[in-house]
Amino acid sequence: MHIPDGYLGPQTYVVLDAAIVPVWAIAAAKVKSTLKARQVPLMALGAAFSFVIMMFNVPVIGGSTGHAVGATLIAILLGPWAAVLSVSIALVVQALLFGDGGITAIGANCFNMAVVMPFVGYYVYRLIAGNTDGLRRRVISSGIAAYVSIVVAAIFAGVEFGLQPLLAHTAAGQPLYAPYPLSVAVPAMAVEHLLFFGWVEALATMGVVAALGRSDSALLEMKPAARPLRWLWAAFAGLVLLTPIGVLAPGTAWGEWGAEEMKARLGFVPEGLAKVGGLWTAAIPDYAPAFVKNPLLGYLVAAIVGSVIVVGVTWGVAALVAKRENDDESSAAAA
């Protein structure tokens, strides 16, 4: 899932690089308030084990093995904010120490693997595991959380890839960056992770949680669930807004297209996209204004609806977890 440099155009990586900075700042503030100066060694070690865990070959089935990302595991162990920092540092070190993973794409990679994945994973885990002390339930919850989180992260990566042919291509239709439209990139990423890497992630996470649960259950102590995280949602919302702006303003990066060319460009639609767009136009009544039938708009609406669903579900889960904790506290107080 590591996106190297060259696949994402500037409209995408600038947005994601810019979006990741405030997320890091918030994460650093959150972590600092809980860990104080101890954050330096703990984040460094968290990053180091995040890095090293990615190097283990996890046997899945037959002779096949795969590498896990470990972001959900780290979120379960250190809490989601600490996981944001640990996994991000691991990715940055990977880029700067081994030249792997890209410089401009750091924001995209961190966003997928160090923000989306630990948060989705953490809240799915908390939702299913609740406050149980039963190791079995925790192990199973961690597996489901790992599976769901990596699939969601992969879909995000697929969307980032899939936006590229829309955002940047020459007048002749030559794509400048990742060439596959959303209709290919998203299912490809999703299927790959649903069928294989999701299982790697789930089996690895379950194995580690089980092993730690047997020996050091203190490490699995539930980290307090954050209240629904306004800032993170603001960042999500900002991204959802920024992405369409990037789509609508593809010429600005080059500064070469006038209104005429822009129209010509917007008229160009890769075949795959045309299908998505077709679905959209089919769903729109005939009397709607012409611009609403634009397949690009259809795609945009789909992207926004998709993001809203992801954000909404995660938010709901977070609220549920927080509420349940409140209830537990009050019932504990009552007792």
């Binding site: 060694p41 703990l42 070690l45 865990i53 283990f56 089996l203 194995g207 089980a210 730690l212 020996s215």
Partner: peptide
């Protein structure tokens, strides 16, 4: 094999957290 691998991953996790405290 998988149990062995994930058990070793858990070992690395434990070692890391212990080391973090000591380094601090």
């Amino acid at each position: 094999n998988r149990d062995w691998v994930t058990g070793r991953m858990a070992f690395v996790v434990r070692k890391s957290i212990k080391t973090a405290d000591d380094v601090y």
